[in-house]
Structure formats: C-alpha cells, structure tokens
Design a protein around this nucleic acid. Sequence first.
DNA 1: ATAAGAACATCCTGGCCCGGACGATATCCG
DNA 2: CGGATATCGTCCGGGCCAGGATGTTCTTAT
Lengths: 171, 171
Amino acid sequence: MPVPSRPSAKLSVDPTVTPAVGRAAEAQPADLTWLLNRAAARMRGELDTVARLHGLAGVRDWIVLTALGVEGGRTQLQLGRELGVDKTTLTSLLDRLEDDELVVRRLDPRDRRARIPEVTEAGRRLQTRIAAARDEAEARLLAAFSPDEQRLLRALLTRLADSTAASGPCL
Amino acid sequence: MPVPSRPSAKLSVDPTVTPAVGRAAEAQPADLTWLLNRAAARMRGELDTVARLHGLAGVRDWIVLTALGVEGGRTQLQLGRELGVDKTTLTSLLDRLEDDELVVRRLDPRDRRARIPEVTEAGRRLQTRIAAARDEAEARLLAAFSPDEQRLLRALLTRLADSTAASGPCL
DNA sequence: ATAAGAACATCCTGGCCCGGACGATATCCG
DNA sequence: CGGATATCGTCCGGGCCAGGATGTTCTTAT
C-alpha cells in the first residue's frame, strides 16, 4: 500500500532516502503511490464507518448493493468479476445481505444453475441513505478545496483511473 | 472499496448520488472515494508486483524496509504503531525479512525486553532497487500527464492527505 | 531491597479470504 | 438422442491477519 515516501530523486542528496514517514508532510514531491493510498484509505475508512453505522458489515456490502442497483440481471459470477471479488466471497456476502432482506437470489429463468441477485426495496433505500451520508463525508473532507480545485482533482483522478485500468476490479 | 459508480453515465439515473427526482442538470461528479481507491489500488498493485519480482513477499515488506532505512532505532512496537500494522503481524514480517538477511533484530541496550530492527546492507540495496523500479512504474502511469499536471496532482493530493489524517497509519 | 504493576515480544486461537473440489445443470457434438 | 465437456454456485482446506494470553524484563513505590 502506501509507501513511506521517497523522493523521486532530484534534490534529495541524502542516499538514505527521504525521511518523513507519516507526519510532517514536508514539501518534497512525496511519492504519488503513497499519497494516493493514504488519501484513498482515509476515505474508504470513512465510508466503511458510515456503512457500519447503517447496519452493514462493511463497505463491500454497500458496493454490492450499489452495483446491483445500477444494473441488475447479472449472475453471481459476472458480478464477482465485475467487482473483483472472489466468487466464494461473494457467496458469503450475499448470504448475509439476503439474511437481512436487502437482496434476494432469483433463479435465472434461462439457466437453472445460475442465481441472479436483486436488490430489494429495503436494500435500495439503505443504499441511497448511505450514498447520501458518503456525499456528506466527502464534502466535509473537501471543504478546504475551492469548487474549481474540486473539479480539477476529479478530472485528474478520472484520467488517471481510466488510463490505468479500463474496467478492472474495484475491490 | 470503491464504489461501482456509474460509467460515464449519460442518461442513466445514478442511484449513488442523491436520488432527487428528475434532474438531469449537472454532470454529476463521479464519486471521489471511488476514483481515489481505484487509482490507488492500481498503483499499489503495481508496486506489489515490483516487490514480488524482487523477491519480497509483498509491498509491506518493502514499506518496512523503507521505514527502517529512513529512521532506525525504534522498537518493534513503535514501528508497528507508526506503520499501522499490528505488532504480531510485524513479528512475522520481520521473521521473514530476517531469514532473508535483509534486517537484523538487535537488542535494545537500554531495555532488554525490546528488539530494535535494523536494515542490513543487503536490505538497503534491495530497498533502493525497488524504489527505483517504483519510480519508473509511476512515471509510466503518469505518461499522459504534463509536468504541470503532475505537479498539480501531487499538490492537491498532498493537501487532501494532510487534511485527512495528520499522522495516521499508512497500511 | 523487594514486591507490585506495566511494557515488550512471541505464541496461540479465531475470523476472513482465496484456490480447489464437488454436485447440479447446460451446451456441444457425434 | 446420449455422452462428454464446460459452467455456476456452494463447501472445504490453507494462508494471512488481528486480538488475547504468556514469559521476560523494566519501573515505581514502600
């Protein structure tokens, strides 16, 4: 994950690599990988907290809910691939969600081996609530940025995310 | 952790954002949490691959190596707190690194309970090699960005990372 | 000086996740 | 039509990580 920053070279004369592991952020061009992971971990943690507060077991539950809400009709395997979770993990995730009445496993009418998970009305409502809370949390963390900066950040990250993995897993 | 927010969404109503009613206004901003996590996961994966290619078990090993290279003299517990890994996990991490002669556990002369891990010369060399490979990988992923954009991205992320967690764990 | 309590590292146990095997079903091909 | 092969979902075993218990050592108070 994150990496304790290291100067991509340049002005650092020190062969022992750049100092500063976490604190004292320091102005040098901190390693991008580390910066990204740090910021991402923070926001993921925030979202995870929100999800737990709303009764879910973690972020992943919410992601599954969201994915199903965006587009249904996929089998578990397809969904797993899309989300980047192992099929077996998805099984247990869905078990829990189904217990909580947030999703239902319907039989695929065209393939009786396959199950097609669907969000229930309750699941949809919960997903929406959590999304709203997440937006709020994001806004809080972005308070120090001007609208222009926020747009810029989004734009840059979008380009970066797109260029790296066209449609890779997101977990 | 990210959220499968929608693709370039055009006409699809995005459930991840406020469900409002009709509003088509505003090209809704792709969820920042998802963008960040996606980009971060990609880069972390890249670094992990690099670390494995160089004989390590994963990114974490490299992070430990780096942290020790930056500043030694810390006990395992202190190091664990700094890095955000559980002390027990750090124990096994160090076991492996010590087997590979990349670090050594010295006894703290002032507290015989404590061990002070130190990087060996071999460990230092390996750390440097991997850091160089990482810089290369980063540069590759940033190829589509102009120098100005790269600086801007770094600056924005630095602000975000700083504002979120002053000195939280980095794992 | 000594005894009580805290601190450090390790070991052990439980939980989570992935890879492989299994039963059920679908598809292909003769 | 019928058998061989591939696919879907679930179950089982191994590996990894966090939390609790343990042995050793340091610190503090009497």
